[in-house]
Simulated scan of single mutants.
Amino acid sequence: MCRTQGLILIVEDDAFVAMDAADSVVLASIEADTAEGVPDALGIPEREEVSAAILNFHVRDGTVTPVIERLRECPHR
């Protein structure tokens, strides 16, 4: 998938914080995709080209270390 400005992945388990971050990203005319936990977040780089990420390191189901590792190995980079 090709984008001119990419996609920002937001991983945050607090819905209000996630919505606020996504709104800020969208106001900058950049697409955002959010996930509340690690399993959901891990699938996004498989489907989308992620340009950057905003990560809450500790979410309900653990740390986002696996997400960071997936983003580092993503073939889109």
Rank of each mutant, 00 (worst) to 15 (best):
L7C: 11
H76Y: 12
V25P: 04
P39R: 06
A52G: 15
V50S: 06
V25A: 08
E36D: 13
V64C: 07
N56M: 08
E36A: 15
V17M: 12
G43E: 14
A18Q: 11
A18H: 04
A28I: 00
T4Y: 13
D20R: 07
C74R: 01
L27T: 10
D14N: 15
R47L: 14
F16K: 10
A28G: 09
A52T: 09
R72H: 07
Q5R: 15
L71W: 01
V11D: 10
G43Y: 04
V67C: 02
I54K: 05
S51K: 09
T4E: 15
N56T: 11
A32Y: 04
F57P: 05
D61G: 02
L71Y: 00
L27Y: 07
L71N: 00
T65I: 09
V17C: 13
V26W: 05
S24R: 12
M1F: 15
I10H: 08
M19F: 09
S29F: 08
I44S: 04
R60W: 02
L71A: 02
R60D: 12
A53S: 13
L7W: 08
V38I: 12
D33C: 11
V64L: 01
D23N: 12
C2S: 15
S51P: 02
A15V: 12
L7D: 04
A18P: 09
A21W: 06
I44D: 03
M1P: 14
R70N: 03
V50K: 06
I54G: 06
H58F: 08
P66V: 03
A41G: 10
I30E: 02
E73Q: 12
M19P: 00
E31Y: 03
S51R: 12
A53D: 12
I68F: 00
V38E: 06
V38F: 04
I8G: 08
Q5I: 14
R60I: 03
A41Q: 07
P45S: 06
V38H: 02
M1W: 13
R70F: 01
